[in-house]
Amino acid sequence: MSEKEVKNLEAIFETRIARDEKIEPKDWMPEKYRQTHIRQISQHAHSEVVGMLPEGNWITRAPSLRRKVALLAKVQDEGGHGLYLYSAAETLGISREEMYEQLHTGKAKYSSIFNYPAITWADIGAIGWLVDGAAIINQVALCNTSFGPYARAMVRICKEESFHQRQGYEILLTLCNGTPEQKAMAQDALNRWWWPSLMMFGPRDAESPHTEQSMKWKLKRKTNDELRQQFIDQTVPQAEILGITIPDPDLKWNDTLKKYDFGEIDWDEFWQVVKGHGPCNKERMNARVSAWENGAWVRDAAMAYAEKQEKKKVAKAS
């Protein structure tokens, strides 16, 4: 293809996106679009799957049967999200094995939030309320993103995420209406999860290199800072209802700007965790890698068995 032809295709492609048309896997797309989408979708899929670990940790210890069942179902949903997203990425020409390989070797990232430990039952509430809550804000915009399979996966996922968020909030509400011990557990969880949740929106706009291109492709509708602000404005009143305090002395309503002012995020901590030195980076990766390695003989067996069955079928037919 000549350079001119490519330019032409690119122009058509950009107009389609501008017209809000969906790009489907078989359509022509610029290589950069493909690579960016593989990166973002697989990273999102990895986040869902690694995200199963901190909460999965509490399944055996959930305090009531009702909570145990709800938590199991939630963690299972996250696995389902991983599955849709891996499938969406596969339509762009990467295999699931390759994506796992990238995760296991550290080449692909996943949301840093899952490198924090879930150490009390209240953390399960805080994760649902804050982490799923932040995820929704990030993801609602993606329901209209330009790549069809990703947009459709997001519609399904967002519905379930808002259910998770309510469930998490309800766990905390029960604790906050409970004994002083329970309320303290909720406060402690908020203290530990608040700042990492704000970090989920990524670096400040000034330090976020992909934003402009992502906006054009509708991988983003708002900037990191705008989304973070939206999250804070929506979450503060919810904390007030719970009667627990957000651990930020600088947090206060700005009546002129009609939004909350808030304190400085510890960006050193953010980069430390991103670079692999958070409290649980090693543990999360070990868990994923050993699940994969210990499962190799099982996957091999399933493949060998399927091949044998196929041969038998062919032998029968001939």
Binding site: V49, M52, L53, G56, I59, T60, K68, L72, V75, Q76, G79, G80, G82, L83, Y86, A287, S290, A291, N294, G295, A296, V298, R299
Partner: peptide, 15 residues
């Protein structure tokens, strides 16, 4: 079985 959630040999089996 709850102990295994998130640790299956692949996602489908895990689920």
């Amino acid at each position: 079985l709850g102990e295994l959630c998130g640790h299956g040999p692949n996602l489908e089996t895990d689920i």
